[in-house]
Design a protein around this nucleic acid. Structure first.
Lengths: 240, 240
DNA sequence: ACCCCTTAACGTATTTGTTACACAATGCCA
DNA sequence: TGGCATTGTGTAACAAATACGTTAAGGGGT
């Protein structure tokens, strides 16, 4: 069938209100690293169809806000955090994904430092869940979670976003452990250190771990400035 | 500010019709490789605000279709192709991105073989444009294009999607040239060949180029089966 | 004070991958 | 038959990834 000169949304004036009703929401996959485990912040659903199941934190898009702002608002309202890694991942629009009707949702991935804000969560329907324990969720939220975790796995291998999950100062052991948890592999400790030192992204804080029942390790911080500079030399290669 | 037990779209029944009107569309960044250049298929806009400017192909989401189906439909209607690489990239929802009101659009990246369907484009407002020539577009479409090209650059380094831009059988020169065009770098010819042969993704078709005014090269095809098998051994490493 | 436990800190040899580089052979065309 | 454009091929130098074991520090218990 040849292409025809048919109306196109971008070339022909459109009716802003199509003849079906739908809603647009954002949903946040809020991930944190706590007690050696990757966790996600969920809320218990009260919707009849999903009574007692866990769901992501989300909200409808407001008339005067863009998508990034809406997801930021959800995070701020729920966790009290105002500065965190937050990135759009994917939009989910299956026709039957919401029992109340047609709801399209834009999924965001947020990486937070659990220690920073754990005191601020007062809503007792909110809980941190180990990602690996979650088998089912309300709506298509398990699919969204899986998609975001896969995006995270890819992302931490390409950019140093992982530091968003750690405190300002961290030990190399912590850092290695977060990587291992998220990627599901184990690294050789000496090679891991070597690799990370040669990136030049770690600042030695000249401090030691405290209150550990073994030889304390040095603490480091992420050298954002060094990263900004090296980022320019964009590297090209074929990995597949 | 502590988080409150406030209503949440996923926990509380919602009004499907929020008190503002908006529309949801899909827009396709249709890329092809033609005459040694990366091109994008665009349509001339008739909207008063963007008269004469070029825009992406898109349409409103229908009540009974999901996002992937909507983008597929746009492609099929416009190019006649029914089987192509098509992947969601990002959703754009800036408040003022559309002059007619609030329109949120989900951008898709499509990779097509220009030779396969160029005869089917009958709509004369449609044209292929060299991506590198495009300076401005209607709406925020230049931003969407740039975002999709960046996604393509990343993607071809991670997965062998590049073969979607070539004909079934291609020469190594063609293959190298597409990479170079998209990534904006040059590879050493011998190292490029070595690398690609060691991937095991190329099948020697035992055919030669024809109608070239130089020594003809061998033709190869993408060995999809070999890729499916090797894909399982998912590789982990830190590149940054 | 001492011992035990746990984990830190450290270096080298081997293997693997990446880069740089030059020349003869093929087919087309005039 | 010579000239042009491009194919096809190998190797050495260098860089990066891997595998691997020993000594040292601090905490806790006795």
């Amino acid at each position: 069938m040849p292409a025809l000169a048919k109306p196109n949304i971008n070339t022909t004036p459109i009716e802003l209100m199509p003849d079906f009703q739908f809603a647009l929401s954002v949903d946040c996959v809020i991930l944190g690293y706590d007690e050696g485990v990757l966790k996600v912040l969920l809320i218990e659903s009260d919707l009849p169809a999903y009574k007692g199941q866990w769901s992501l934190l989300g909200d409808l898009l407001g008339p005067e806000e863009d998508l990034d702002s809406a997801s930021y608002r959800v995070l701020k309202e729920r966790t009290g955090l105002t500065d965190m890694f937050l990135e759009q991942v994917k939009t989910f629009g299956a026709v039957d994904r919401h029992p109340a009707g047609r709801v399209i949702t834009v999924a965001y991935l947020a990486l937070v430092n659990v220690k920073d804000h754990q005191l601020k969560i007062t809503d007792n329907a909110l809980h941190w869940h180990a990602v690996s324990d979650i088998k089912t969720m309300a709506f298509d939220h398990k699919l969204i979670l899986d998609t975001c975790v896969a995006a995270l796995q890819r992302k931490i291998q390409e950019e140093p976003v992982i530091f968003n999950l750690l405190e300002e100062k961290f030990s190399l052991r912590d850092l290695q452990h977060v990587f291992e948890q998220i990627l599901g592999v184990e690294f050789d400790r000496r090679n891991f250190r070597k690799k990370l030192f040669t990136t030049g992204l770690l600042t030695d804080e000249n401090e030691m771990e405290k209150q550990v029942r073994h030889r304390p390790g040095k603490l480091y911080s992420f050298n954002r400035k060094a990263y900004e500079q090296m980022k320019r030399k964009t590297f090209v290669g074929l990995q597949f």
